[in-house]
Amino acid sequence: MKLKGLEIIRKSFKKIKKYVKVLASFFRASIIRYNNYKIEYIYSLSTIIPFLITLFFWKILEDSIEGWSFNDLALLTLMGAILSTLIELGGFWGVMLWFDRNDRGNLALMITKPINPLIYLHGINFFPGSIPKLIFYLMLLITFIIQNNISISILSVVGVVFSYIVFFLFLGIIECIIIAFDKAAIPLFYTIIDIFKIADKPIDLSSVLGVVLTFFVPLTFAALIPSKILYEGRELALFSFIMTVVMLIMFSLSYRFAMKRFEAVGG
């Protein structure tokens, strides 16, 4: 029994090691790929402009918004910006464009490789151009934390990470829906991205809207909950963890559904 347990752990480690190596390999390839298009890095940095415009609006409106200081609003916007940079880095945009431009046959080819096809899809769409921007936002976050004397614990960092994972899994579910229903479902992704624009707005978590955007379309996990975790920590961090487990189950169900549907009609 003990030996079997050890064997499972050994196999899991082997698998993790393989995936780390594969992801590193994808990342290396993406860097080589974008070496041909160095201007992309400048472009990516330019996406800071909408972030700055949003801050500008908050500055104008700060006095008229009750219960939220400019600092709260800025942190909210920053957490949203970090997540959207991670979305870009992880190739979500590229994957959508890939779905738009390729037919199912190309996905069929990925299914014949000994690796998860979703990881493969994201791997070939990694966008290293986002790294400078991510560094900029993270530095801004660190400056913000130091200036505002926010005490950071491991729990709050882990909480933020889990909160982001909830949103990534949510996007993963949408990808599964696209795999299952083909191109017809792509506008769903753009709808979600449109809705994402409200993620960095000061929503009251206990309001009806807050509840809907937490449990049904988990948008609050994109900016609101991560920014609150940094201030309040514990409970919300735990909540993010529980939601991660729930979303993981939902994602795995959608993935199975997508693959089953693909196998029935695919290619």
């Binding site: 590193a24 390999s25 290396r28 390839a29 000994p114």
Partner: peptide
């Protein structure tokens, strides 16, 4: 990317 880099990826896969 160059052919060899795709092959290196398959080496890991």
């Amino acid at each position: 990317v160059p052919v060899i880099d795709s092959l290196l990826l398959f080496k890991e896969i």
